[in-house]
Amino acid sequence: MNKIDKIPGDATDDALTFYGETVSSRMLLGTALYPSPQVMADAVKASGCQIVTVSLRRETARGKIGARFLELINGLGVHVLPNTAGCRTAKEAVTTARMARELFDTPWIKLEVIANDDTLQPDLFGLVEAAVELGRDGFQVFPYTTEDLGAAERLVSAGCQVLMPWGAPIGTGRGLANPYALKTMRNYFPEIPLVVDAGIGAPSHAAQAMEMGYDAVLLSTAVAKAADPVRMATAFAQAIDAGRAAFCSGLMQSRDMAAPSTPVAGTPFFDLDGSASRRGGKS
């Protein structure tokens, strides 16, 4: 059950595949909330990420806003993952997904069905309903979900080949609110790509998710709202790489009592006091 057993030893062969598309970066990055489009583009480049999330909104300026954004994104040479952010019902999400597919020319959809404003938490019932319909319609769904295993099973039954549980509510930057549940989910679905989506505030949070064996991390605000988004994008990329390498290397098990890391045999003065049990450890 432990995913460590299944990890290939060769780090050069450590690619990640979503619906047949292989990427080498394990970061998925949002494109919103940056101080300027140029800073966004620079941050994406600095991060090395190959998948960015995008959205759609009501067009007001005779199509120019959307066209300009599309041009910028297409120039980055990355995969786009459109979202259904803001949708409250399965029906809204399905229609939004279909509009996104036409706009961005991709079957990928980051499926969000939001339950309420305060937590922006997934509405699992609407999520599953929408995933079933979109799956039938040929979409490749990336569901923004919780750690709930029952909902996750239903999403997988609906054809989802990736699951994206939240770390914490969107935009909070609180990190992994429920590491135990996330670990359980990882162990329960050893073969399905799992992405921690939302709530990541610091590179250490991202590293923690990767050390747990998560396949990737999706983040947005933590980079976009940094004082220096480009440098923060680099910091996250390094943390994600470090976390992944650590997971693949096999992390040590933690223990309650100290264990000397310097060999005990041959320690000078070891027998001077003649005591069988010495107090204190050696370092």
Partner: peptide, 27 residues
């Protein structure tokens, strides 16, 4: 959803609620 190719064949009626959207930044 009304695909681009179907707009010509989609009649409008009073009271219809129409959404016209384009690409935007997302998280």
């Amino acid at each position: 959803f009304v695909p681009a190719g179907a707009r010509e064949k989609t009649p409008l009626e009073p009271g219809d609620k129409i959404e016209i959207v384009s690409a935007r930044q997302g998280g």
